[in-house]
Design a protein around this nucleic acid. Structure first.
Lengths: 238, 238
DNA sequence: TCTATTTGTTAGATTTGTCTAACAGAAATA
DNA sequence: TATTTCTGTTAGACAAATCTAACAAATAGA
């Protein structure tokens, strides 16, 4: 299901990156440093070093310092670059906390393809060169810009049965917001009202071909675009 | 190194998501459908179903149709939402091809944290509500907006030895660009010129605490911000 | 009803990655 | 020099995920 990147696993990429980081600050890398940095048992490091050595990514002989080969260095740097790009996107653009961003970046770095990485890098260059965009993002987007479009938006509760609209945004606090997003209610998704609800009766809507129930007070928070969409299988066509 | 999300592995999340997708179009899910959709041997599906069943995420009895439990449905939807968000970010914002975006999203969907997912959803809502931003992104950013800042940027080859600058952008074709990005030369990174080069002599620079060699014709492509940065360990402080 | 095909399961092997416990080498200290 | 401590390795176990090959159940066709 995933793109195999450099015939090397995520775990081994982590080891390479860790070795690279250690070498960046302390001239030698030992098993112990690696184990500590990665929060892993030293006994797990040895077999990992053997696997890396077999793939010619490090120079390793028993009870000796560990060095990166040319190829290992390349992968380590590339992994770290991916990590930095993801981490910066999460903090600078999305406004995620540093710690959370580190976590997410750690996990995602192994899978970002070459082309996505390049585009992400280009995005940052573009962002840096475009003060307008920068300013827009800097203001933070939790608070939507103006209320100018507010009047046109249609709450899900006002939708006619059988008709389909695109979700414009979720107008709710953190908790309900998260709940709705988890269930697939994201901007741009097409929603069809299968059966309208009432005070006690939940609304039933179709999203991604699956029926979902929504209590009235939650359905109110889902704001839709005013234009009608044709019902179809193909969402997200932009 | 990674955030464990819902005490369920990426592979099992994939199975859940696949079951969800199948149920969205065909009323029953069988082992065979799952195996086919996931490009996996049917013999691999059975043990996966057992693991999911043990975690109460599906209703499964030998040789029978497979159903999602409430909890399983929740995880399946959430995984799919993550997938959609990532895929849309990659295609709509970064301009990655649909196929590549699918691949990347498949791999990354399992690790995006709750908070990052919410912020990413908010980013799309913001984007949709902000025509200026939309327009900026729609124009595509491979071609940098104006050349107005061009004059101020300093090629790496003109940097004085020992001084540090932030990378503004890479002014090169796809090939050299990719090469430089893989090595960590991304917008915002701080670079220090350790030793200037010449026609035959490569430039030596410090990036992430590691020395790297750059032939002159490649160093020319690295454009730096004009303002001096203090040399330090802490990059990416924004 | 009996066979052939489709579908699902089991058994057994393999790879990756982790752990604990026991042991071996090296360095530091007495 | 002898002993203790630190560091690294091995052995052995385990879990997750996959595969191939062989088998079993269900369905369809004759």
């Amino acid at each position: 299901m995933s793109t195999v990147r450099s015939d090397i696993t995520g775990s081994l990429e982590d080891y390479l990156e860790t070795i690279y980081r250690i070498l960046g600050r302390s001239s030698v890398a030992r098993v112990r440093d690696i184990a500590e940095e990665m929060q892993v048992n030293p006994a797990s490091v040895t077999p990992a070093m053997k696997r890396l050595s077999a793939k010619q990514l490090i120079k390793y002989s028993k009870r000796n310092y560990i060095e990166l080969t040319e190829k290992g260095l390349f992968i380590a740097r590339r992994t770290m670059t991916r990590h930095n790009l993801l981490s910066r996107f999460l903090t600078e653009v999305l406004g995620i906390s540093r710690e959370q961003a580190e976590c997410d970046a750690c996990a995602m770095e192994h899978f970002l393809s070459e082309s996505s990485m390049e585009r992400l890098a280009a995005f940052f260059e573009f962002l840096a060169a475009s003060p307008e965009l920068q300013a827009l993002i800097d203001t933070g987007f939790g608070n939507c810009p103006e209320g100018k479009e507010e009047l046109e938006l249609l709450p899900l509760t006002d939708l006619e049965p059988g008709s389909s609209r695109r979700i414009a945004r979720i107008n709710a606090g953190q908790k309900i917001r998260g709940q709705l997003i988890d269930s697939g209610f994201i901007q741009g998704a097409i929603i069809t009202l299968t059966r309208p609800g009432g005070t006690d009766l939940p609304f039933i809507v179709d999203l991604d071909g699956y029926d979902q129930e929504l209590p009235g007070e939650i359905a109110e928070c889902v704001l839709l675009h005013p234009v009608q969409e044709q019902t179809g299988e193909d969402d997200y066509e932009k």
